[in-house]
């Protein structure tokens, strides 16, 4: 394709995008209709990365009208908790049948959850937990187990560095439950290993660009004496790979990088030998969520925590094998 055609195409997309924005702005606000469908309000995170995209698309594709549901999707504005609370409140006021919640921040949900409880609307947490974790305020939390996933990374690190290593952790934004849990699981194992030395941890806000900048400085402040980087999501891991390369080191050999999530980009990077370990944090739990919602609406009891099983990939071969079927 010539550059010129491509310009026209992208400009077209930009214009269409602008139009679409205008249209959504006008098209919102049609109220609930009584056609026998179960109304589900989904307070979602919105665009954050490939993992979230896969997760939320999967939920949207599961709760279809064919399955008997009307899903109201409310992504947060720029990951802002306030916009989530607003959406949550309006779902309660509207009187939806069930609310699914993926909280951008762990704290500050008590009031909203109590409102839902008073309105007798069951709330199911998806992926992200809340703090303090008061299980009376919600029905159940469906999520892959962050602690188990990060423990798997730590277990791999222990076996991959029998002679010990200096390691650095790229964290998500401070205060998010995922970050706390991924730290907890990892530290429980790695903290007990005397020969695994933590040289530091810093947030890169889930961002490739920021992770690259952080790792660039971390390598300098440690005279490149870092053998292992644990990135709490794929995007940051990919940034770390670039920083390691820029520093004249070889990722996978001089510095091994492990990430969590298991997106297609990460698996491609693992297949190319740049990443060394990818622990999947399975986003596809639409089916599980559907079952739980049905049980709740039937009045059945459900466990307060439901774990979605996840896989791990520790070699280029494993990654290549999984790539063709990767949905996210």
């Amino acid at each position: 394709m010539s550059a010129k055609q491509r310009i026209v195409q992208v400009l077209g997309a930009a214009t269409a995008g602008a139009l679409a924005l205008g249209l959504t702005a006008c098209g919102g606000g049609d109220g609930g209709d009584d056609d026998g469908l179960t109304t589900v309000g989904f307070v979602a995170v919105g665009p954050e990365g490939a993992w979230r995209e896969a997760n939320e698309t999967n939920i949207q594709e599961t709760f279809t009208e064919d399955a008997g549901y009307e899903l109201k999707y409310a992504p947060a504005t720029n990951l802002d908790q306030k916009s989530q609370i607003d959406a949550f409140t309006s779902f309660v006021d509207e009187g939806v049948d069930v609310i699914l919640l993926s909280a951008t921040e762990a704290t500050g949900w008590e009031d909203s959850l109590k409102r839902a409880q008073e309105a007798e609307i069951p709330v199911i947490l998806l992926d992200r937990g809340i703090e303090p974790d008061d299980t009376d305020l919600y029905v159940t939390r469906i999520a892959p187990d962050n602690i188990a996933v990060s423990t798997a990374v730590a277990d791999w690190a222990v076996s991959a560095f029998p002679d010990g290593a200096n390691y650095f952790v790229l964290e998500g934004p401070a205060g998010v439950s995922v970050v706390n849990e991924r730290n907890e699981g990892f530290d429980a194992v790695a903290g007990g290993q005397a020969n695994l030395v933590k040289v530091g941890a810093q947030t890169a806000n889930w961002s490739t660009e920021e992770a690259k900048s952080v790792v660039e400085t971390v390598l300098k402040s440690n005279d490149n004496d870092v053998q292992f980087i644990f990135a709490q999501n794929d995007e940051m891991g990919l940034g770390a790979v670039q920083a390691v390369q820029e520093a004249g080191l070889t990722p996978g050999t001089d510095v091994k990088i492990a990430t969590i999530d298991g997106t297609k980009n990460a698996l491609e990077s693992l297949a190319a030998g740049e990443l060394s370990f990818v622990a999947e944090y399975n986003p596809l739990f639409g089916e599980t969520a559907l079952e739980v919602v049905e049980q709740v609406l039937n009045g059945d009891d459900v466990e307060s925590s439901i774990v979605v099983p996840s896989a791990t990939f520790d070699s280029p071969e494993a990654a290549e094998a999984a790539l063709p079927d990767r949905k996210f």
Partner: peptide, 16 residues
Amino acid sequence: FATASVMTVDVSRTGY
């Protein structure tokens, strides 16, 4: 400058 650094645009973080 920001995106060329990692050749990735992060729609929720770039320039945030």
